[in-house]
């Protein structure tokens, strides 16, 4: 529980990672909301800069004309993945205190399929709709309204869906655990797939 930089150094020396800061008690709920606002602002900034606030640019991914979605998403995934791996390795972060989403096989498959159709019909996702709306795009606002309705529909139907929602639970299953490979090998594999994808995307975009 580091309250200062010197204390954090001692913690690292004793083999106790000082981070994630919120999990080691560095600050409380109210402050975490400020953190959320700041992180969200940076997130929205980069999304707009990358062009993902534009529905036409975003759907280009699914028509093979503009691979910005793939590039932004996978660059972000690889960056955070490598960053977390090495900060953990250096003893600065306890990776087991980072919340890993739980795996529910059928719901995630079904939800993914429905989400994908909605994504190509709507042209933006829940996060990028906010960026589009604040850039003046009225379709962004319509999407936000649609999403609220979709969530409401789910919630009202929930009692009928509860059994399905709780089915095929596999815990915090990670690719290393599932494949039996060391974490570092999976990290390497994901990076290779991303880089190969980038090379392919560049080639496909270069064609007229």
């Amino acid at each position: 529980m580091a309250a200062s930089a010197p204390a954090a150094v001692l913690q690292v020396a004793a083999g106790v990672p000082p981070a994630p800061l919120y999990e080691t008690g560095a600050f409380g709920h109210e402050a975490s909301l400020v953190v959320a606002l700041l992180l969200g602002t940076a997130f929205g900034w980069f999304l707009e800069r990358g062009g993902l606030g534009s529905a036409r640019k975003l759907v280009g991914q699914f028509y093979g004309t503009d691979f910005a979605v793939f590039k932004v998403l996978f660059t972000a995934v690889v960056t955070a993945m490598l960053g977390l791996f090495w900060l953990s390795r250096a003893g600065l972060v306890d990776p087991y205190l980072v919340y890993v989403p739980r795996t529910y096989v059928l719901p995630q498959l079904a939800g993914g399929l429905v989400f994908g159709v909605g994504l190509v019909l709507g042209g933006l996702c829940p996060g990028t709709s906010c960026v589009a709306a604040s850039s003046g795009r009225l379709d962004g606002l319509a999407l936000i309204a649609g999403m609220l309705l979709g969530v409401l529909a789910f919630d009202e139907m929930y009692p009928a869906l509860a059994a399905f929602m709780d089915s095929t639970f596999a815990g915090a299953l990670t690719l290393p655990a599932w494949t039996g490979l060391p974490v570092g090998a999976v990290v390497f594999g994901v990076t290779c797939v991303a880089l190969a994808g980038f090379a392919l995307a560049e080639r496909l975009e270069a064609k007229p």
Binding site: L73, P101, L119, L121, I144, M147, V151
Partner: peptide, 27 residues
């Protein structure tokens, strides 16, 4: 499209930010 995504995201317990980005990076 928004309604479909709202529904799909609830069923999948996340969307491109929570599942693809976060879950993706955490493998």
């Amino acid at each position: 499209g928004g309604a479909l995504m709202g529904l799909g995201a609830k069923v999948a317990r996340g969307c491109t930010s929570g599942q693809a980005l976060t879950g993706g990076a955490l493998l």
